[in-house]
Design a protein around this nucleic acid. Structure first.
Lengths: 189, 189
DNA sequence: CTGTTTCTGGAACAGTCGTTCCAGAAGGTG
DNA sequence: CACCTTCTGGAACGACTGTTCCAGAAACAG
């Protein structure tokens, strides 16, 4: 069976994601990736093809984990609207988003990244829309409200919170935004 | 008085902004900038110092023009809330934002860009807050509403619309978000 | 322990990057 | 017309980029 690989691909991808997230795609050199992952150049290239392939692999892993986080947060809540509120709070307090930054930097020129960015947006929208329709079935949200429009606006709020973080807005300001948006869109207001 | 310069700095900066906006900072080569601006390498370096200086100059020019657009849109409207609505519509239909993309790509590592991103956010927030307080004085907005929180949330919506565009969301979806957010935050809802 | 297969580390590659420099052209002044 | 200052175009620089290649080490099968 030959010699097995001596590294964990997921750990490598997490390390690579960290480099790409802080430096951006272009500014992240292969040397940075070698240092961060602990692998040698040859092993990196053998495992992921090239820099672009490693980037996409890191993006996919992050996208998968991020989608799970959203689904779990919404599912763990007692009521659908509580899940939405909890997820907004999570985003407000959490750090920047690899996918949103990736979209801003590369979606215009890299179709692969653009596809993943679009997919991530659709997943976010769908998760919010499902929760909103569940809330309507529960009677927690008025049935005449447009669930798709509200879901898109909540998604835009998530992206706005990421953008605020890039712009240096403090966490308290982001929490205020998350609460204000939630209250105005689906909350008691 | 010697020979006057044969180019318009503002035109050069607009061309440079176009290159930086579509490629990002790192992926934009000096050769791209030379081709787009029509200047020679020497003239570019003599006028702006280096690539980073040219980038900041383009950022400043864009920031100035963008700030004027916001102020003018709000000032031209019959009522403050109409101005806000018009600006949101403008952002929803307009293209990506150089400053938001710049913040996403470079604010984490470049203090100069970070400072300009923070400044732009503050200006956006202040413009919205001023309009909202004017609306409260007019009686168009209930005086007990928190103008600062609403202004921050409107600002986040603007950033969210930019992010949606990077993620490939179609203009119609962005218009829906702009209208939904406006209605829920300060509109008739 | 031998053979085989795979992974590993580092050297080497061509290409491009941002930047600098210098000779020459171009306009304004006396 | 001659002078002088400034801008211009292009060649040249070293450094670094992503990528490839090759010899050697390491782990499994028999």
């Amino acid at each position: 069976m030959s010699r097995p690989r001596a590294f964990d691909p997921d750990c490598v991808l997490d390390a690579a994601r960290g480099v790409f997230e802080t430096h951006g795609y272009e500014a992240a050199s292969v040397q940075d990736l070698v240092d961060a992952t602990g692998l040698s150049r040859s092993s990196l290239y053998a495992a992921f093809g090239d820099k672009h392939g490693l980037y996409l692999a890191a993006l996919d892993r992050y996208s998968c984990a991020g989608g799970d986080a959203l689904a779990q947060t919404v599912a763990a809540a007692a009521a659908p609207l509580d899940g939405i509120r909890a997820y907004l709070a999570l985003v407000a307090e959490g750090g920047g988003c690899f996918l949103v930054n990736a979209a801003a930097e590369r979606a215009a020129t890299d179709p692969d990244t653009a596809g993943r960015a679009a997919e991530a947006w659709n997943r976010l929208h769908a998760a919010f829309a499902d929760a909103l329709r569940a809330a309507q079935a529960d009677g927690a949200l008025a049935p005449e409200r447009d669930a798709d429009a509200l879901a898109a606006t909540l998604g835009a709020t998530v992206y706005g919170l990421r953008g605020m973080q890039s712009a240096g807005a403090p966490p308290e300001a982001r929490v205020v935004v998350a609460e204000t948006a939630f209250a105005a869109l689906v909350g008691g207001a």
